[in-house]
Design a protein around this nucleic acid. Sequence first.
DNA 1: AACCCGGGGCA
DNA 2: TGCCCAGGGTT
Length: 347
Amino acid sequence: MTNTAFSTSVLNWYHQHGRKHLPWQQDITPYRVWVSEIMLQQTQVTTVIPYYLRFMERFPTVQALAAAEQDEVLHLWTGLGYYARGRNLHACAKAIVEQHGGEFPRSVDALADLPGIGRSTAGAIASISMGIRAPILDGNVKRVLARFYAVDGWPGSPAVQKDMWDIAERLTPAHSFREYTQAMMDMGATLCIRSKPACGICPLQPDCQGYASGKPTQFPHSKPKADKPEKHTWMLMVRNRDGHWLLQPRPQTGIWGGLWSFPEADSEEQAQQQAQLRFGTQIDQLESLGSFRHTFSHYHLHIHPLRISLNSNPLQIGEAGVHWYNPEQPSELGLAAPVKKLLHLPD
DNA sequence: AACCCGGGGCA
DNA sequence: TGCCCAGGGTT
């Protein structure tokens, strides 16, 4: 599908189904579009409408807004959330009046230098209210494009974000970009919604790679979970002459709280040291069993078992509450999953 | 309860 | 550059 076919398709849809009666779509001026875009940044259309109407009634011009007390601006913002938007809006109005003669600068870059206006909002103001062809990439557009191209990777990452801006730029038509911009936002807001998108009535469906994948809602990919750190532990698998294993209770809190486990050490050296200290000459054989990985919700644990065979059956080794576990007649104890696995490892 | 969102601010 | 924050709404 060519870029032109894409935008034509989107524009046709807009003429039939797009939203054209929202308050900020009437009497289109940079000021009115700007206020609406800021309000719409993190807030849905239906929530914004009453705030927008009240705001416009009280501050019909950028001069009126610039002259207001911050308290009054924030009062009209109360309930919208993200109050930095309201403070930036006020600061931006002052900047426009004091530094730009009361007129919005007529370029995307100059707009984006103003407080609270980033690249996407600048693109929306320019393309909707100034006759300047400029792409936008708000959440709605991002979703439409990520699905259409089945974009891999999280759009928040710099590389993917750059790709998506390039796509947005490429697809923005030379003419009718005001309607196109509106249309893309409308499609994202009404058809290509986060869950249960209306692919059945979407004009882009025949060429949509997200639809073709069978799982359009997996795009855009969600923010990757924080990387799980890799941790290591050495487990001393101490076996007495009868083939029973030494277990000791874990603290009540933390990982495996209250379960039974092998004595542990933070390194191979410490593990050897601990073994020498506790069992010394009773050690018959000591062998590394290699390691395996156990995953928790928040980290990966590499477990390095160290099998230590004793030439005796120590009765008392100083610590209270240790347990000698007989795999032939397993006691009913709480065991961490990897510990249980190790206890029943074939020789 | 988890997730979402444009831009600002800070390390 | 990357990371965290803000808050109300949706799922």
